[in-house]
Simulated assay, not measured.
Amino acid sequence: MGTTFHPVHTLVGIIILQKSIVYITAGNNNSLDSLENLFIRAGFDTSTFDEPKQILKSLQAQSPSCILIEAQGTETPIVELIKTIRSHSATVPIVIAGKNCRLCDAVDALRAGASDYVEAPIVDRVLIESVEKAISDSQLIQTA
């Protein structure tokens, strides 16, 4: 797979291509490393966070193309985390990777503002496509 870029519209109407960056947080270091390597191989830039709340501090300095949260092992309830991220950045897409989830958890996450919920067992291709679609949909909304 090649490098993943997304268009950025400037104030004067010029479109530039910017490399897509995915913020990733997971419940343990093995999952975090695995997800980071997956997205790097797919052509994304990544920033990883041991704790989901660390993302909030980083959002003040830089807006990612997408946020990927592995739901397993997070101390903060997913719905609360999504709402908090939404209060800091209303437009950044959020994809949840869930393990051992109940249907109502996925529905609650989507209602709180997640772009997608990918349930385990997670297939790499499906997760990458979900993030790519979330980024693409977000760009369509921003240009409308």
Results as ranks from 00 to 15, higher is better:
A120V: 05
T46L: 09
A114E: 07
L110N: 01
I85C: 06
N28D: 15
K133H: 10
F49P: 11
A144G: 12
T10H: 13
L17D: 13
T25E: 07
Y23Q: 03
V92K: 00
L127C: 08
K57C: 08
I55M: 04
Q54F: 08
K53G: 02
N29M: 09
L17P: 01
I69Q: 02
I82T: 05
S87P: 06
V131W: 10
G13Y: 06
I96R: 02
V79M: 08
Y117K: 02
V123D: 14
Q142L: 14
T3R: 11
N28Q: 05
T143Q: 13
V126P: 03
K57T: 12
I82W: 02
L68Y: 04
S115V: 04
S138W: 00
K53M: 14
A112N: 09
Y23K: 00
K53I: 13
V95A: 11
E129C: 06
I69L: 15
D116L: 04
T76L: 11
Q72D: 14
I40N: 05
N28V: 04
G73V: 02
C101I: 15
R111D: 12
V107W: 01
I94D: 07
D116Q: 12
A90N: 09
D45L: 15
C66E: 03
L103N: 08
G13L: 10
Q60G: 06
E119I: 12
Q18R: 10
E70R: 06
A97L: 13
Q18F: 00
L32Q: 12
S130M: 04
A120Q: 11
S63P: 03
C66N: 02
M1C: 07
I40T: 03
S87T: 13
C101T: 09
T76I: 15
D45A: 15
A26Y: 04
V12D: 15
I128T: 09
I135W: 07
P64R: 04
T143C: 01
D124T: 06
A109M: 03
T3Q: 11
R125H: 10
S65L: 09
N30D: 10
A112M: 09
E132G: 05
V123P: 02
S47C: 11
L110A: 00
P121R: 00
H9P: 00
I78N: 08
T25L: 06
V22N: 06
S34R: 09
Y23A: 02
D50Q: 13
V92F: 01
A71F: 05
